[in-house]
Design a protein around this nucleic acid. Structure first.
Lengths: 278, 278
DNA sequence: CGGATCGATACCGCCCGGGTATCGTTGCCC
DNA sequence: GGGCAACGATACCCGGGCGGTATCGATCCG
């Protein structure tokens, strides 16, 4: 099966309309019709059931669509990884969530820079989903936080484990407590927990404020509109008006350094070695 | 990146010899040279370092090779799965290890056959690696035994959990014991544990007999040459001269029914539903 | 029943993949 | 050290397939 045929089929299967699919692919409709027809003939299976008015997926088409998408994604990732591995480029790109693991990151970068043979490290501080940068080749290595960030398909080393704290407005009654339990903060009607976007960019339902980054979040907390539970280290150096209170029964957060399997860079290996010395 | 180019590169990277690689691909050498050159130009990266006497992988080539192999395997699997999903075929093919889960299998097949809407079920009884049949599309569903069979990348439902027994010659001193511990049978100098082939078909080192199937194994045990630890149910209905003794500290064996993700067959869904009723 | 929408088909030009012939380089061996 | 053999690169040719335009045929709508 050819890559082109496969992406043609995915486009047609997603659009369920040959004209629009062809447009999306930057070709005209007839070659698309022929390509899909040829693919079906080669497989000996109908993939799309089509009348001149409606196009639907057959069972076989649904199977192929589900398998084709990750294959095409893996192909694109392989291409980017190969490009990065060949062009020595600007050194390493390290991805992590902005605001997370601040002290650990600073220590790591300092220690690495002091090593003989270190290369320049660029930072990719994203608002969410740092592991995506790894998968699509925009970064070489990432600091991820279990259980928040999925690490499936990556090689990892554990760097650090820490508890979590609630960050609340200093004026709120719970701010004076020495410690809290999860239930103490998840049930406050006047202070609903902030909601972060999921992997698809959509927000879960709930009463709390929708937030995308830490600045926004801290401002909303300072205004008494929301609260949040996050790792201890993210609560270091809080601005005025915010208080961190340990949550004793929250699951521990593990910071890991992660990289795509099959990486062969000496610079990356050195960075991982330095990181695991902590 | 084209599939053809990718498989050309894999062949060249594995053979490290353009002539042989071309022969393996069923083409001549010049188109292969051109294809690899074009791929390198498009990626902007050298994949193979070649003199007229020696071909070696570059770092980028090693990355691409490692990523390309699973991608090509996934492509081939997708093709087979799609073919199977389309051609309603002879019904379902169920794979499992010959001799394993005998009673459970019989019950499952009977119960399924009694359901309205059941289709004929063919059995693929293999000597090892039943999950391979699933991955390459030769089977639709399998009974696997954790922790022996890898279930990564499959959808599963747990059917049954059982302990393990040692199967020894009836005349041996340990045969009269009511129960054993793993250490009791793994250290017997006169009765070394049988060795099964690994995923690559090679046998691990050790003193025990090399076996491939249950008939062979039981014969060797009856002759006093080896012993084995296996799930209780596999020890049911032993031939004359063999005795099963429970191993109290062996890890439990879980029988699962497994199928490739994205399967959409009604017949398969029914089989799984029947299986999970036990 | 006429028109509009949409997928299939016919036909054409060009690019690209594969083939044969040959060149240039590099170890190797006498 | 020179001749030779092995091997990858290059030159050139041919045919198939991909993409384009034009058009057909079917189906739904008003």
């Amino acid at each position: 099966m050819d890559t082109r045929e496969l992406s043609y089929f995915v486009a047609a299967a997603e659009e369920l309309h040959f004209g629009r699919a062809a447009q999306r692919l930057g070709i005209t409709q007839p070659p698309l019709s022929r390509a899909i027809g040829r693919l079906e003939r080669r497989l000996g299976v109908a993939l799309l059931h089509r009348t001149s008015r409606r196009v639907t997926l057959t069972d076989a088409g649904a199977v192929l669509l589900a398998e084709a998408r990750p294959i095409l994604a893996a192909l694109a990732a392989a291409e980017r990884h190969t490009r990065r591995a060949g062009t020595s480029g600007p050194g390493l790109v390290l991805a992590t969530k902005a605001g997370a693991s601040g002290e650990l990151l600073a220590k790591l970068l300092d220690a690495y820079a002091a090593e003989p043979g270190a290369v320049p490290v660029d930072l990719a501080l994203c608002e969410s989903q740092p592991q995506r940068l790894l998968h699509d080749g925009r970064a070489d290595v990432a600091l991820l936080h279990q259980p928040f960030d999925p690490v499936a398909g990556l090689d990892t080393e554990i760097l650090h484990t820490e508890g979590q704290v609630a960050i609340v407005p200093s004026g709120h009654p719970v701010a004076v407590r020495a410690e809290l339990r999860t239930a103490d903060v998840s049930d406050l009607p006047d202070l609903p927990l902030a909601r972060w976007p999921g992997p698809d960019g959509a927000y879960p339902d709930g009463p709390g404020a929708e937030v995308r980054n830490q600045t926004q979040l801290f401002q909303l907390i300072a205004l008494g509109r929301t609260a949040v539970i996050m790792p201890e280290s993210s609560g270091a150096g809080l601005p005025e008006g915010l208080t961190a209170v340990p949550i004793v029964d929250a699951p521990a957060v593990t910071t890991v350094i992660a990289w795509p399997p099959h990486s062969r860079s000496r610079a990356l290996a050195l960075l991982v070695r330095v990181a695991t010395r902590f």
